[in-house]
Simulated scan of single mutants.
Amino acid sequence: MQKLIRITTVPSSLRTLLKGQSRFMSNHFEVIGVSGDGDALAEVRQNEGIKTHVVEMTRTITPFKDLKATYELYKIFKAEKPFIVHTHTPKAGTLGMLAAKLARVPHRLHTIAGLPLLETAGNKRTLLDAVEKFTYACATKILPNSFGLKKIIIDNKYTKPKKLLVIGNGSSNGIDTMHYDTRLISEEKKEALKQELGITKKDLVYIFIGRVVKDKGINELVNAFNTLSKREINCKLILVGPSENHLDPLLPETETLIKENRRILAVGMQKDIRPYVAISHVLTFPSYREGFPNVVLQCSCMNLPCIVSNINGCNEVIENEVNGLIITVKDEISLENAMQFMIDFPEKREAMIRHARCKITKRYEQTYVWNELLNYYKSLN
């Protein structure tokens, strides 16, 4: 059986972003996972039933550590002799594609699920642009996970259009529509969580899920909600996800508002987001940049209208005033107005709910995405 090696920078990406996919591909390839060490990698071995290798990679520019990781990847490729190396996340992509090219792996695929460099400028942007082009040059195929991202790559001239391929309708892993179903969360569980968080029947609950960082639009979201909550007594905002102040810090005044506004409920990282989605009414996701946002798929699948930025990925899932609202990027007033809209027009919000889940099941069902990727793997020779 031919070998397929999947690589991510940190093991949580291998565990969460590609959940179930490695086990599915194991029916057709000998799948090997490579990532940094940790409990998440142990979970991958157990849940996906695949062999794994540990290679520590950093998420910042660290030349000596990067060279060491590249050499370790090269040694793995020479020993395993894979037919395909498929990388995800920026650092794993750069190091994995270089090592795979040096090891003469025949098929070197890199999935683009977002471009953090779009939010940089000056010398750092010049450097990151060069790294991006280098990564693409080492790959045999680049797989943007949205059509908007494909256009951005072409516009920035990172590679030639013929080297790009979007799998299916976009998304790296699709969505398990049977898992993300509000019917799986009992009324008892929902009531207990509401009581724990101090949410009443009168409250309209907004939710954000993701890294609580600047690039996700958290400064704008917290400010917009803070202003809204002064006018509207019955509203809450749940923030689900880890902060990464060492990588992308929030403004100090945003941190203060999160602590001081008692209607902002920061619950941190949650292994199962579904109970929190089930007690919410609207997803607020004002991100600056995305590849293809899983959280918009997940919340839509659980019947939430979504307020999203007018960026690639988000505007491919959400149709304005059909299954959500599309707002201007980095525009606090646009966001506040959209949140107010959801309060002022409950009948329009209800109509959006009716369109939310069906759009996802038609286009992004997990097995469809997996089979589309498998068909591409099988086309390689």
Rank of each mutant, 00 (worst) to 15 (best):
R6W: 03
I7R: 00
T8S: 15
S13T: 14
S13D: 13
R15T: 06
L18E: 13
M25Y: 07
H28Q: 09
F29E: 11
E30L: 09
V31Q: 01
V31E: 00
I32R: 01
G36M: 09
D37Q: 12
D39I: 08
A40Q: 12
E48I: 14
K51W: 03
V54A: 10
V54H: 05
E56K: 15
P63R: 06
D66Y: 02
K68A: 15
L73E: 09
Y74S: 03
I76M: 04
A79E: 15
T87K: 03
T87N: 03
A92I: 07
G93P: 08
L102T: 05
A103C: 06
P106A: 05
R108W: 10
T111P: 01
I112T: 10
I112P: 12
A113V: 09
G114Q: 11
L117Q: 14
E119K: 10
T120K: 05
N123L: 13
R125G: 09
T126N: 13
L128P: 13
D129Y: 08
V131F: 02
F134K: 00
A137S: 10
A139H: 02
K141I: 04
I142E: 02
I153S: 07
T159I: 08
K160D: 10
K160S: 11
K162N: 14
L165R: 04
N169Y: 13
G170L: 10
S172D: 11
T177E: 13
H179C: 05
H179V: 08
D181Y: 11
R183L: 12
R183K: 15
L184K: 14
E188A: 10
E196K: 14
G198H: 09
I199H: 11
L204Q: 15
V205W: 04
Y206G: 05
I209D: 11
L221C: 00
F225N: 00
R231N: 13
K236P: 14
L239G: 00
S243C: 11
P249D: 07
E253C: 03
T254V: 03
E255I: 09
K259P: 11
N261W: 04
M269R: 15
D272R: 15
I273M: 09
I273C: 08
I279Q: 07
V282H: 10
L283D: 02
T284Q: 10
S300Y: 06
P305W: 04
C314Y: 07
G324R: 00
L325E: 01
I326Y: 03
T328R: 14
K330E: 11
I333R: 13
S334Q: 02
A338F: 09
M339N: 01
M339W: 01
Q340I: 05
Q340G: 07
F341R: 14
M342C: 14
E347Y: 07
H355A: 15
C358F: 01
I360T: 01
Y364C: 00
Y364L: 01
W370K: 13
E372I: 02
K378Y: 07
L380Y: 02
